[in-house]
Design a protein around this nucleic acid. Sequence first.
DNA 1: CACAACGAATGAAACGTTTCGTAAAATAAA
DNA 2: TTTATTTTACGAAACGTTTCATTCGTTGTG
Lengths: 336, 336
Amino acid sequence: MKKDFSTPTMKDVAKEAGVALGTVSKVVNGLPVGDSYRIRVEAAIQKLNYQVNSYAQGLKANKTYTVALLIPNTIDPFYASLTYYINIALMKKRYRMLLCATDYDPRQEQDYVTMAQQNKVDGIIGLTYNPDLIVDENTPFVAIDRSMGTKIPCVACDNFAGGQLAAEKLAGLGCKHVAFLRSGSALDNEPNKRKAGFETGCLSHNLSYEMKILNDGDPFEEFEHFITEHIHNGRLSFDGIFCVTDRLAFKIRNTLKGLGIRVPEDVQLIGFDGIRSFGNMNYHCSTIVQPVPDMAEMCVDLLLRENTMARPPLICLPVTYAYGGTTLEEEPYEEQ
Amino acid sequence: MKKDFSTPTMKDVAKEAGVALGTVSKVVNGLPVGDSYRIRVEAAIQKLNYQVNSYAQGLKANKTYTVALLIPNTIDPFYASLTYYINIALMKKRYRMLLCATDYDPRQEQDYVTMAQQNKVDGIIGLTYNPDLIVDENTPFVAIDRSMGTKIPCVACDNFAGGQLAAEKLAGLGCKHVAFLRSGSALDNEPNKRKAGFETGCLSHNLSYEMKILNDGDPFEEFEHFITEHIHNGRLSFDGIFCVTDRLAFKIRNTLKGLGIRVPEDVQLIGFDGIRSFGNMNYHCSTIVQPVPDMAEMCVDLLLRENTMARPPLICLPVTYAYGGTTLEEEPYEEQ
DNA sequence: CACAACGAATGAAACGTTTCGTAAAATAAA
DNA sequence: TTTATTTTACGAAACGTTTCATTCGTTGTG
């Protein structure tokens, strides 16, 4: 871990090349310099294997070309995917990414924000459900999936439209009576618009529906209970289910299997997120797909946008539907 | 993106508190200082909302408390999990993590290593299959899953023992004739020891076996072909399969389903890695589980170890077996 | 040929820390 | 009270860049 080897500095390069310090700086930064100088400096850089010290640069410029990503973890496939695409989007703009996994812990989230500011990151992209998070006004911040006040732009998929789309699909697939299942944060966050969208969609497609909403900490068993009490004479009283996430849909699918109810023959199931096994193989269920690469790109664009005024408070990106084996498609899509 | 607001410096704090610069530095770093001074300085820090500039610290100390993680992506569940636990392990030691997703691109890998050195990161943890990667001798490096010469320590699970364990399990489950399937890099990397371990295990448990090895770029169809040509009268000629990864096992499982061969009734299937759906739910298949949290911890320990001599070239951590529905357990484990 | 005008290299100063030799204050000994 | 000794705060220097006012050398014009 020790760094006793002393790396050459611009001064060394200048001495080696027999030019001034400023000239080396110019060459390194691609600014115009007389050819004879440039050649000598480049030779010296080669010879000494010189590398700029970007922390000295950062000190001078008060800019670090680093952005912090605040996210609960990288294990949940949705977060993992966001992380990956945000990393790529930042790379494209020559920014580095400091990963801050918070494990949903408000304390860690706050610590990371403070740390991020100490590190003088140029901005923060944050997916957090902590309502009390204090973000310093002068560190640019972009939120994902939760609005954090008018000063902070929020990037999300069009959750409302996603809910509508799910209802529309279920109606199109012949469902008459459907259910919406949600577990998760009761906060006024973006994903909770899926419910409203679904209701709207059900109404406009003449679907009758039921809702089962669980908040933080509620046990999964309540869903099982909800389902079993809707079984009469071995038949489920609804023929379509929309789950707020693929994760939940996956659990429900297993539960249904355990109860001897067939998916999709007895009940059709649609999830939300567009999670795939192993990143690029099958979908776990038929699902509303979030445009993760676009969302990532948008976050980075907004964060690095020079004109602070041009930051709308909320950006919704369009969702799509994908077949994943839990619906009775008229013409099944190719399941890869 | 602009930072016109000028943050207070130590000098400002010193002036506010009426003490010397060095005194503020000591307070900030928790070094002994007279109580009356400490109190005044702390008050001033509060008042001005002072934050240390860690890039100035880095410039001075030539140390940045930042480690780069070089990994193909964060979407593959195995990589995602490694990323998460390495992040945690680094946090514990108060280090930050710069995420460098390489997408298997040797060019990007090299760029990142160079960049990492420019950023003066204190070390690199790398999972890369690029045999030509040039790593500067004086940037500490720890490799995952591939040995990169005696100077660079490599952390892996005990792949050989994992292969043996798979054979032992299949034998214990009553298999007589088994197959090993592998696709992936032909490089002399750690995961390729799974094959050798499996062979050894088969021999010591009197299992006859066949191997199907595909290298980079070979199409998956060859596996299908391999399987179909081992079907005689609708029966598969082997009763157990060990796949080199869960990912492959997952694909093979689907293929078998398509061919009307039942898992685990007709053929039992064991994968490798210990991937779970959605990060913490069911295993995708019965599998040899890599101790990812331990591996992460070990990488960080090795990297930050002061004594360079105490870095063994290869560390193998123990694997375990987990039931995931693709084997006929005598007493099936609880499937969560 | 003299002088102005321009272009380009120079190098000192500054960024915000940490460190360390020096000086002052406090305590102990005479 | 004076001197010796210890303790503690002080503040200049240094880390490796970038910037910009200055200077030097060149070319063009009268």
